[in-house]
Design a protein around this nucleic acid. Structure first.
Lengths: 107, 107
DNA sequence: CCTCTTGTTTCAAATTATGGAAACAATGCA
DNA sequence: TGCATTGTTTCCATAATTTGAAACAAGAGG
């Protein structure tokens, strides 16, 4: 695995790493509907504003969302809608595997 | 965020967590071509067999791959091809963002 | 039975990720 | 200016992940 391959797979991994947290996926789901500011998302998720800000910063670094200042608040918006299709694919895969392994019906 | 939502987003996050490592994505890419045993993948990636085994175990737990014993070796095979489409989507998104942010041409 | 090969598991160490509090910056408004 | 609101950053404690070595388990084959 040479340097170029390592960098290429590192980029993909960074993208998935940004998605590898329940709060961040929930944030993306909320941003699909409309713009949200940090304090709104923090209240919706029941977490500290600093934590929400850091999660949003990770999503922004991954290029999944973008922000825009409006007065004292910062509005975040979704950039890459295909990401949520990925999340849906992930969920259906997980559910299919649960059914296959444990015979559970989809809940 | 109630318990049911937390569990639902936790499941999605677990799937992405399984993909959030360069070696594991590389493994999935290799498994797209054909079956591979642990020692082959370990040699290909230049990592210890115990490390390769643990990465594969994570991918299996996520339901992305499956294994089958053949004598002393264990063959792994890809289960969910849509996962690699996700990885491709991730890469194109990353590259698009690089171009948008830094004006780089696609490499 | 003995030995070699292949994989998995366990263990400790190092690294990384996360959360919460506090400090700080920036804007709006009286 | 003074003050409240909103976000970001920093610091620290805790939790999770990753790695490699070693121990262990399971077959294959002499």
């Amino acid at each position: 695995m040479d340097e170029q391959l390592r960098r290429r797979y590192g980029l993909k991994a960074d993208m998935f790493k940004a998605l590898a947290h329940p709060m961040r996926i929930y944030m993306l789901d909320k941003l699909r509907e409309r713009h949200w500011c940090v304090c709104e998302l923090a209240a919706e998720l029941g977490i500290d504003k600093s934590v929400a800000s850091k999660h949003l910063s990770q999503l922004k670094a991954a290029g999944l969302i973008d922000d825009e200042k409006r007065g004292t608040l910062v509005e975040y918006r979704l950039l890459a809608p295909c990401i949520l299709d990925m999340a849906a694919c992930a969920e259906s895969t997980v559910l299919a595997n649960q059914r296959r392994k444990y015979g559970l019906s989809p809940s």
